[in-house]
Design a protein around this nucleic acid. Structure first.
Lengths: 151, 151
DNA sequence: ATATATATATCGTGACACGATATTTATTAC
DNA sequence: GTAATAAATATCGTGTCACGATATATATAT
């Protein structure tokens, strides 16, 4: 802790941004691996999470999950196709607007997602504080002030 | 702010994890878009960042960046190939161990990376606090305590 | 009732990560 | 000191997936 948090040498902002992305990558790697161990593709996991974790009252359309996952509509369609084929997800045509497909999890999908959620929460409880600290360092170094007391 | 941070309805842990991934995805989308606007593939941006932002004294080998990017060695080789082809990066054989390739940025690579760094710092200064808050909520809901005062 | 917009779906393409394997150089065992 | 093993990088074929362009079906507006 202290000055070693952002060692001297190269541009401290680049140094800290690199560290942040590394920590982020570690989390994503954990997440991808956990999903695959559970028998899900990482993106399928994300789809299930956005479906199950949507705010109350959300209309769970393809367009909604596409926006939440940062995907184009057609990519979300394909992801839902694959997930449906594997019995993780079900589509039903919206009775109120037959253009829409409503997504919901199957029991299998819920089960797998639930297991992953606990693991992710644990991992984030460990990683979170480190991420937060690195984020603070970024803000410190991006305001290009000479560094005062670390932390 | 307050109770609305994690609305009622479905499992609040799933709800919060979904929110976290959405915020993360927003950042990544920003980052990918910024890189591409600057003429870089997102992964090339990450490679340059890990090269330029490595701690003083780091030996900048393929293996090093592979580990930092969470890639297999061969994927890092290919990424370095593409980046070298576009004049962002240079490889030199390590004189001390001729198996190793040492990576360094070209002037062009440094220039592009520098521009992106500022934009990213600004974006993270905005997004960081929200991420930190969501992370805290995850920790709150993963310890399955009944919720007390929000925040 | 026709035109336009919206939601989802289909298809061909390209980027890229990976496993398996090869090649070169170091290191170790004897 | 040479053979054997390890380590670092490179090459090649394959599969996944995200995308743009386009198509189809339903809703909305004029």
């Amino acid at each position: 802790m202290g000055i070693r948090d952002v060692p001297p040498g190269p541009d401290p902002l680049l140094r800290t941004l690199a560290e942040f992305r590394f920590e982020l990558r570690c989390f994503l790697y954990f997440s991808e691996t956990a999903a695959q161990k559970a028998g899900l593709q990482p993106q399928q996991h994300q789809l299930l999470l956005q479906v199950a974790g949507a705010p109350e009252g959300t209309i769970l359309t393809i367009a909604y999950v596409a926006e939440r996952l940062g995907l184009k509509h057609n990519s979300a369609v394909e992801l839902a196709d694959r997930s449906e084929r594997e019995g993780l997800l079900a589509r039903t045509v919206d009775a109120a607007d037959k253009r829409r497909a409503i997504l919901r999890l199957t029991r299998k999908g819920k089960l797998l997602l639930g297991r992953l959620a606990g693991d992710h929460a644990r991992e984030l409880n460990e990683l979170g504080p480190r991420l937060a600290k690195t984020l603070k360092n970024i803000s410190r170094y991006s305001h290009k002030s000479a560094q005062m007391e670390p932390q």
